[in-house]
Computed example of a mutant assay.
Amino acid sequence: MNETRSLSDQDLQTMLEALPLRRLHSLAKGRIPRHFRMGKRRLIVSLLGLQGEVRQYLAAEVTRHMAEQRTAIDAQQISRKRSLPAPATARHKIKSPSTATTARSGTPPTTIEAVLEGIGVPPPTEFRPDPWQLEAVSCLSTSDVIVSAPTGSGKTYVAVEAAKRAIQQDQTVIYTSPLKALSNTKYMEFSQIFGADRVGILTGDRRDNAQAPMLIMTTEILRNLLYDAASGEIDVRLNTLGLVILDESQYLADPERGVVWEETIIFCPAQARLLLLSASIGNPDEIAAWLRSIRPVPCHLIHHRERSVPLRACYLHPNGNLTPLFRTRDLVQGRGYAFHPETLKLFAEFEARTFGRSKR
């Protein structure tokens, strides 16, 4: 305790600056009013202004946290040293082409023609939503919905159709994104779909048509609106709120900003439905279970894994040769991959020329 009493303001400030924002909010809870409205710099200034026993507690907690971090780092370094492999006899070693060619011999490697097949503008066809898209829109009438689907698979269709239904019922729709640039892009996109008079935008830099039935904003703006409502400030838009769309909801896992998404979900009015969209949530089942535990309505999870737009990879060698990067034409998540034998041959040639090693 003597060590914590002797901490100067400068020492304590340095230690606070090293803490993540979520930890600072935890220290401020119950001690600083409306602390979640503050940025990191303002929050540190407010914490440094605490006096008496509260300050002693703050110094003790910060000192304990820093000691735990140092202990964890030391343990990681010891574990890493123990797990280091024996020194290799040759650097930049690449598997020989002969070994790669025989690997998975049951399936011949793809060709560059196959990889490039289908590139271009596809012929126009009638749009038909996939069953999982229709399921997501239908479930929003009775429950929250989490959509985890690959990029380009049609998550925006779900958002648009759900917004149309909510607006037809005279409900307010709020669409949030983590970035101002993305909010501006969605504002233009949705203005073309719903009409400029029915879409508004609220960001730190922009405020247009703020009473529109559909509002585009950053997640921080929505969180602040919900804070104001919780403190008694009446906002008609929240009284009629029927749908909240949280795009890029994988930000829940962000160490700095994830708390914003958590609090937005926690403070979201019970009458509004939540639609979480993401292409990269690693644990959608756990997120759905958490929503069920804190929200008064069920949560329906849609985990769509098939890519509408296939991923393919090529390797362009400095000598101008273009070859498939992998043995298979398309990349499929979870199935692993092996390098194409022609690419491995080019790798070996480049390695020999760059590092002066003779080819085997």
Rank of each mutant, 00 (worst) to 15 (best):
Y187E: 02
P123H: 11
A162T: 05
P124K: 11
P124H: 12
L222T: 00
W132L: 00
Y187M: 02
I221A: 15
V145N: 00
Y175M: 03
W132D: 02
V199K: 01
V173N: 04
Q169N: 13
L140M: 02
C139G: 09
R165F: 10
V121Q: 15
R206H: 11
N184E: 14
E126W: 15
Y187L: 01
T125R: 09
G152Q: 01
V147D: 06
E189R: 09
P129G: 02
V158D: 06
A163Y: 03
T156S: 03
V145A: 01
I174R: 03
Q211D: 14
L179W: 10
Q211Y: 07
F127D: 12
D170A: 13
A212R: 06
E189G: 08
T185N: 13
S191H: 00
Q169C: 13
R207K: 11
C139V: 15
S183Y: 06
T185P: 10
Y157V: 09
V199Y: 03
P123K: 13
S183V: 15
A136S: 11
T125A: 14
D144N: 00
K186Y: 10
G204E: 12
A210W: 06
R223S: 12
T151C: 03
R128H: 12
T176I: 03
T156C: 01
S141N: 14
D170M: 07
I216H: 04
A166G: 09
T151G: 02
I221T: 07
P122C: 04
P131V: 05
Q168A: 13
V160N: 09
R198S: 10
V173H: 04
S148V: 08
K186L: 10
A166C: 08
W132S: 00
P123C: 06
P122G: 07
T176M: 02
Q211P: 09
S148E: 08
E220H: 12
V121M: 12
T156E: 01
L140S: 01
R128L: 10
D208N: 07
V173M: 05
A149K: 03
S191V: 00
L179Y: 11
E126A: 13
T125G: 10
I167P: 10
Q171Y: 08
A149W: 08
Q169L: 15
E161A: 05
I193R: 06
Y187C: 00
I193F: 10
T219R: 06
P131I: 04
V137Q: 04
L140W: 06
Q171A: 13
W132C: 01
V158K: 03
Q171L: 14
P131E: 09
R128F: 09
T219A: 11
T151M: 04
S141F: 14
A159S: 05
L222G: 01
A181K: 07
P131G: 05
S138C: 12
V137M: 04
A149I: 07
L140Y: 05
